[in-house]
C-alpha cells in the first residue's frame, strides 16, 4: 500500500511538473468551457440540461473521456520499459501490483482534477444565481472519474503491452472506441447480418433461423451488459449512485489493472 502511494506520488509529481500535462489540461478545459457556455446559450439558460450535456450526454464529453486517458497513460509503462526503469522498479522493494496501481491512481487523480472543473462551473453558476442540482452534478462528476479510471486502466494495459508510447496510445484509443461503439456495431450486425444469415441457412422461418435469432438476442443482451454508455447514463448522469454501476466500473477497471500487472510481469521473461 505504501509502495503504491510512493509510486503514485512520484507519477503525480512528474505529471504536475510536466508542462505537457498542464498544456493538455488547459486545452481540454478550454474546449469544455467553450462548449459549456454554448450549451447554456443554446438551451436558453437551462442549467440542469447544460450540466447534463457537459457530464455524459454530449459527444464532446465522451470524446474527452476517450482521448485524455491514453494521452496521460501512454508513456507510463512503455517509456519505462524502454529506458530500463521497469527493471529498477521491479527490483525495488515494492510489489508489481503497487507499480501499476500507483500509476493508475496518479493518472486517475489528474483526470479527476480535470472533471472537477465541472462542479466548478456549477459553483460559478451558483454565484450567478442559478444554483444547479448539486447531487446530480456530483454524481455525474463521480461517474466521469470512474469512467476515466476505466479508460486509464485500458491505457495502462496498452502501455504495458508495448514499448512505443504512441502505439500504446493508439491501441488504447482503438480499444476504448470499439468498446463504446460495441452496442451500436452489434445492433447493426444483428440487424443486417444475422437476419440475412438466417434467411440463407434456413429459408426464413426454419428452426435454424429461430435459434440464430435467439443467439443474436442473447448476444445483444450480453453486449448490453457491458455497454458503458448505458451504464453511465442510467446512473451517474442523472445523479443516481447505484452500487451495481459502481461495481461495474470498478470491476472492469480491476480486470484491466490485473492484466496490466500480469503483462508487466511477463516483461521479465520476454
Amino acid at each position: 500500500m505504501r509502495g503504491t502511494l510512493v509510486i503514485m506520488r512520484r507519477e503525480l509529481f512528474s505529471l504536475a511538473t510536466s508542462p505537457f500535462a498542464w498544456i493538455l489540461l488547459s486545452v481540454a478545459l478550454f474546449l469544455n468551457g467553450v462548449l459549456f457556455t454554448a450549451y447554456i446559450q443554446l438551451l436558453d439558460g437551462d442549467v440542469t440540461w447544460a450540466l447534463r450535456f457537459a457530464l455524459g450526454e454530449s459527444l464532446a464529453f465522451w470524446a474527452l473521456l476517450v482521448f485524455l486517458p491514453p494521452l496521460f497513460t501512454m508513456r507510463m509503462v512503455a517509456e519505462e520499459a524502454r529506458s530500463g526503469l521497469v527493471e529498477y522498479l521491479l527490483t525495488s522493494p515494492i510489489s508489481d501490483a503497487a507499480v501499476i496501481l500507483g500509476k493508475f491512481l496518479a493518472a486517475t487523480t489528474f483526470l479527476a482534477l480535470f472533471w472537477c472543473s465541472v462542479p466548478l462551473y456549477g459553483l460559478v453558476l451558483a454565484g450567478l444565481g442559478a444554483s444547479p442540482d448539486w447531487g446530480a452534478l456530483l454524481g455525474g462528476t463521480l461517474g466521469a472519474i470512474l469512467t476515466s479510471g476505466l479508460f486509464v486502466s485500458t491505457g495502462l494495459l496498452a502501455s504495458a503491452s508495448t514499448s512505443t508510447p504512441v502505439l500504446a496510445a493508439f491501441l488504447a484509443l482503438a480499444f476504448n472506441l470499439t468498446w463504446l461503439a460495441l452496442p451500436l456495431v452489434t445492433e447493426l450486425l444483428l440487424g443486417g447480418a444475422v437476419s440475412w444469415l438466417a434467411r440463407v441457412f434456413s429459408g426464413g422461418e426454419g428452426l435454424g433461423g429461430a435459434s440464430l435469432a435467439a443467439a443474436g438476442d442473447w448476444l445483444q443482451r450480453l453486449v448490453g451488459t457491458i455497454d458503458i454508455l448505458a451504464h453511465f447514463q442510467k446512473s451517474f448522469l442523472v445523479g443516481l449512485l447505484d452500487t451495481t454501476e459502481v461495481v461495474f466500473f470498478l470491476s472492469w477497471t480491476g480486470l484491466f489493472l490485473f492484466l496490466a500487472v500480469r503483462l508487466l510481469e511477463t516483461r521479465r521473461w520476454r
Partner: peptide, 8 residues
C-alpha cells in the same frame, strides 16, 4: 542501463 527518472 542506469535507469533514472530524467525529469527528476
Amino acid at each position: 542501463s542506469v535507469p533514472l527518472y530524467g525529469e527528476l
